[in-house]
Write a protein that binds this DNA or RNA. Structure first.
Lengths: 354, 354
DNA sequence: CTGTTAGCGCATTCAC
DNA sequence: GTGAATGCGCTAACAG
């Protein structure tokens, strides 16, 4: 037995379908008496307007598309949580498009750029090309989260600043031999965060009269603990290894710490390590890191999007969430003649089993 | 400029709209010549059928709703990944409904039980009541993932068995004083896994001629590391504390390990700890646990759902993913006069900072 | 093979 | 205030 239609309700309430439509949409010009009659009929038939019909009639999809490589990094999940939570407060359905391959990325970024597919588009961690941005701009209100294009509204942190903040912390601790571990600056999806963080590192180094030797930048084959461990090994087996390592993400910092332990190095006594993101695990592992408001940035992206939907002609806006250095127990003053001053307890990270 | 419609294409190609519809839907009875003409027009206008109109006309929503408390536990995310990946292979959109409050739970479970809302419904970790199940059964093809109702198709592990497996492992190591840490058996969402796991524990104990003393079951106020740590403290401060603790989830096992370290107890030398789920973190922490195929179970749930959509009259089916004991380094033979035999290296979990 | 027509269920004009 | 008519864009059934 299929659901009741607006016509069934009209017949039962003894009114026209126009009237039923009016009470559904809280239109003011309906007498109290008929409104009650209609509402009774609605309740009796447990009627609920057919969303597909509404969408077609309204010319709106009542949904926003969220496209992202959701499951590649813990930080994405936390941002997504903010997005979904904020969207639940709106009348829009959340349609999720997970991208795991470049092909999917390209497909979604072009196919979803139409008003008849969604009322708004939220793109996470996938910077559009100029061509894509143009199509998006002409097609559907769009907000970028954790990525950047000058023509589109976005919520994106200042990764150059973050990289500099991490580096300055290490410099302040007296470190001058600072290494950098990151994934490839040329990822298939166009992730650029690690490149900007590197820029920040170099900038801070420059301000201190230092430079980053080429061999101090180890590129992991891919984002993940084991790959970062390998990169860490390379850095630590240098003739003159760094005394501190900045990892482009917390996940990679963990790999670096494992590499240190393999060589019998204590963190932070023998090696300082700083990460980036402040994922849940970071607190648990007492990892010094750059905190960014993940959940909140998802919420803000939704606010930007609602704005863009309501005022389609507004110029793009940018929100830059604040970054914060979180000093925990994986960084310490560089070891000189005597032992490091602060008595941070040794950090315990399980060594790799493989 | 709004997107082209089927009528625009028809005019441009010099055919009727019926013909255009036929080529769109790969209907066989179209001559090659006209097909090509139509396809040309489609390309020139970059036409794409309006999904809302299609849905209304077809009487299908072309989407499946996924309702779950997505972000409460790491294991859910991994299952979700399987669900989304499998759904990407189908013609259905994925509409996500996150539940964070009982009110949301109730609302979604009733509102989504209609054919005009979705073509299929996937419910994760939220066992429906009998009343809800009935409505679901009458309303829309539904599959349960990680929860149970006899009237609905489901993918659900045998938690009683899993609890027994964990317990038998500890028994085999010679432990007889076995504690249990879990969250409340009466969660607001109706999570029942920890209750079944407890049943399995009791059953295995019974088979060994033992019983679980009431004080050996510590209930955490809520699911999370700190709460489980508190529960662990209670167990370990007993006059005769357990020599092994079974935690209802890996997350909780971590809390227990922290509690042990606080008291200066070595894991596994002084205390064996076993978890449940085998989340990513478990391998990293060398946690002995009960593995369940999280990703695969999401995929299987989707297969069940596609089946249910295609064959609405089929009786409910059940898939029980296999469980597997993963022995790592947090369990060891019970300490007797001499030291434990196996030379597992001590497990290193950071102690709580707070 | 192909053009035309009749809905799909609702919102939104219009007249009344 | 309210009922009836028109159209949203498409699919499917029907004639030709």
């Amino acid at each position: 037995m299929s659901p009741a239609t607006i016509r069934d309700v009209a017949k039962r309430a003894g009114v026209g379908i126009g009237t039923v439509s009016r009470v559904i949409n809280n239109h003011p010009s309906v007498s109290e008496a008929t409104r009650q009659a209609v509402e009774l009929a609605i309740a009796e038939l447990s009627f609920s307007p057919n969303p597909s019909a509404r969408r077609l009639s309204l010319g709106k999809t009542l949904s926003v598309a969220v496209v992202a490589p959701f499951f590649t990094r813990p930080a994405f999940i936390e941002r997504l949580r903010g997005v979904v939570t904020a969207l639940a407060e709106t009348p829009y359905d959340v349609v999720a498009y997970n991208v795991e391959t470049p092909k999917q990325r390209n497909r979604y970024l072009t196919e979803l750029a139409r008003r008849d597919r969604c009322d708004g588009l939220l793109i996470m961690a996938l910077a559009p090309t100029d061509e894509e941005a143009e199509r998006l701009l002409a097609g559907v209100p769009t907000v970028l989260l954790d990525c950047y294009h000058p023509c589109l509204s976005r919520v994106v942190i200042d990764d150059v600043l973050g990289g500099a903040m991490a580096t300055r912390h290490l410099l302040a601790l007296g470190h001058t031999r600072i290494g950098y571990v990151s994934d490839s600056p040329a990822s298939p999806f166009g992730f650029v965060a690690s490149r900007y963080r590197l820029q920040g590192l170099q900038q801070a180094l420059y301000e201190a009269g230092l430079t980053l030797p080429a061999e101090y930048h180890a590129v992991a084959a891919q984002h993940g603990v084991p790959e970062a461990r390998e990169a860490g090994r390379i850095l630590l087996s240098l003739p003159e290894p760094p005394t501190a390592i900045f990892a482009a993400s917390d996940t990679q910092a963990i790999g670096v710490i494992q590499a240190a332990r393999e060589r019998g190095l204590e963190v932070p006594e023998d090696l300082s390590v700083i990460g980036y993101d402040d994922i849940d695990l970071a607190e648990f592992l007492h990892l010094t890191t750059i905190h960014q408001p993940l959940f909140a940035s998802g919420v803000e992206a939704v606010e930007l999007l609602m704005d863009a939907i309501e005022h389609p002609e507004m110029p793009p806006r940018e929100i830059r969430p604040y970054l914060r250095l979180v000093t925990r127990q994986t960084t310490a003053p560089v070891r000189t003649g005597r032992l490091a001053g602060s008595a941070a307890s040794p950090v315990q990270v399980p060594s790799a089993s493989a």
